[in-house]
Design a binder for these strands. Sequence first.
DNA 1: TTGTAAGCGTTATCAA
DNA 2: TTGATAACGCTTACAA
Lengths: 348, 348
Amino acid sequence: MNSKNTKRITIKSIAQQANVSFSTVAKALHDDPAINEKTRERIKEIARRANYKPNILAKSLRDNKTKFIGMILNDLQSPFYSEIYKAVGDVLNKRGYTMLLSDSSYDEMLEMKNISTMISQGVEGIIISPVCKDSDGIRLLLEDQVKTVFIDNHPSDPNISCVYVDHVEAARLATEYLIQLGHRKILLLNGPEKLPSSQDFRKGYANTLQEHGIEVQERFIKYNPISIDGTCRQIDDIFADRDSVGRDDFTAILALSDVIAIGVYESALQHGFSIPGKYSVIGYDNILATKYLNPPLTTVQQPKEQTGHYAINLLLDQVEKDLDEHRQIILNPELIVRASAKSLDKTK
Amino acid sequence: MNSKNTKRITIKSIAQQANVSFSTVAKALHDDPAINEKTRERIKEIARRANYKPNILAKSLRDNKTKFIGMILNDLQSPFYSEIYKAVGDVLNKRGYTMLLSDSSYDEMLEMKNISTMISQGVEGIIISPVCKDSDGIRLLLEDQVKTVFIDNHPSDPNISCVYVDHVEAARLATEYLIQLGHRKILLLNGPEKLPSSQDFRKGYANTLQEHGIEVQERFIKYNPISIDGTCRQIDDIFADRDSVGRDDFTAILALSDVIAIGVYESALQHGFSIPGKYSVIGYDNILATKYLNPPLTTVQQPKEQTGHYAINLLLDQVEKDLDEHRQIILNPELIVRASAKSLDKTK
DNA sequence: TTGTAAGCGTTATCAA
DNA sequence: TTGATAACGCTTACAA
């Protein structure tokens, strides 16, 4: 906004210049045919020269429509999310909306604050990747009847729309594949424990082990931040015998996210172990560049762009038609076999 | 926002319930000591129970402060930008601001629209990575005296603050290194031609060649979108002899962005050439995961988080102190030697 | 201690 | 064809 000394151009200031009332200016700028063509053009010319831009806030206040859509994610930097909001942003732009973006950093308090602020700002709808199920923030969203679409997760309340990939199935796909390759001791690097996707992923992992008669050991399930550093610290603990799991207790690693998998790659460099020689590794998301890693990362693909498109279209439909109809869209994960996981038999 | 049938909680509606005037409510909610403690608590309790959230837009309209900061970038999805706005977002959050984010997609028209919308929305400042120097959008920014910080580029007008990495130097670093390795025919994959960073990068490349007595050939400088696909199409053209450059005319590739470099990796897979066997490759940005590529990508590091921090602090200082002081912060690039570029001598 | 009124920049209704 | 007026929700003198 301008410095205090430069005053804003408004319909009023234009009215003064044009020697008409401000409501005449308003009409002229809206091409109201009631206004004399000459005055209209004269006014529009003045507005143009002054670089007049309507104050959307004032307009919003008046007609109770802001054209703001809020987007609340857990890590703006994550390539996983960025593909999603790229897709969302494109649609928003085309349909004349503006995106308010904020980052909850996997923190329930911050999420609450973000939601609250956005409601205050009059967002017409929110796309959120929730920190956990049933947080205060989510309760607020429900009580205030804010149009909401969950992504990356299904809400426990059916009164909310959502678009998500079936994480249970994703973990099943990966675990099944590892078992086929002969792995029975699989370390699960599962991100933040409260994260809904983490819980589902764990379920898919555990179910599949059980189906194959393999015991699920809690000590094989690790919760750490989704970051390269966080992952390295976990592996460091294992290699320094500070963990209940020893370095030779497992043969494969399943990661909740490709970023975590990349953390394992970093660890491999640091500790000098080989992938998939020492450990087979499978990631999740299929983010940019995983195909070109050394070795190419075997991972489970999430349709990220699709997620974004579905989510924003669902939301905008609700917003524009003022519907209270809810839909749950479940997308399918897909195993992408590359070279970071290999058969145990051949290695022995 | 709520459905049409659910009406919003306002100080007025609370006033009705509490049987006081709406200004009493306003004061009570602001802990005005003038209000009787009992009434104050009673009012606050009603507000709490009703989940009252102030309408920030109305407040903004009144006191001409929105606490909105706009961020306009060229590709939301790019890992390069996402590290930057992660940093910006963190600061914004802490200081009570909200980020409006939009994507110009390297399109001058879109940029203009984005700027214009944001001004309409009353942003108090803008961080922009401009599509080109001297666009209409930038002119608008100047005329309206919007507090602005350029990133990834230096404005031709000194009246704008900026934070950027010296792209000329970055290209020099990379080119110098390639020349040291014995390369003299270096293909430059330089992104969109109008992009300011592209022009600087080219300059650094050309200057360095000349300093070493190597002729700068226009046909070696290619302009393509910054994407894997766009890069592949360029290499395809070369391999299909549809280009003025033949596949054996050069020994190294310098890319304006790691994303482009990754495109070359994809091409290598498709056409079966080896990196650095056939071509040495150097990228720019040092985005996530480039360290683990096969081969690890030699690239030039940009301090992205730092860029974000400097930019937002610079901007917020201007905004909050209403200063018209401008600063240009130049950050230094750094060559990161890994394994995608190698000496020519040894290959022969 | 509480209430009244004006104003922020719009839009829309009604009167002139 | 143009102008006056009220309203959106909030803050803040000022009056009671």
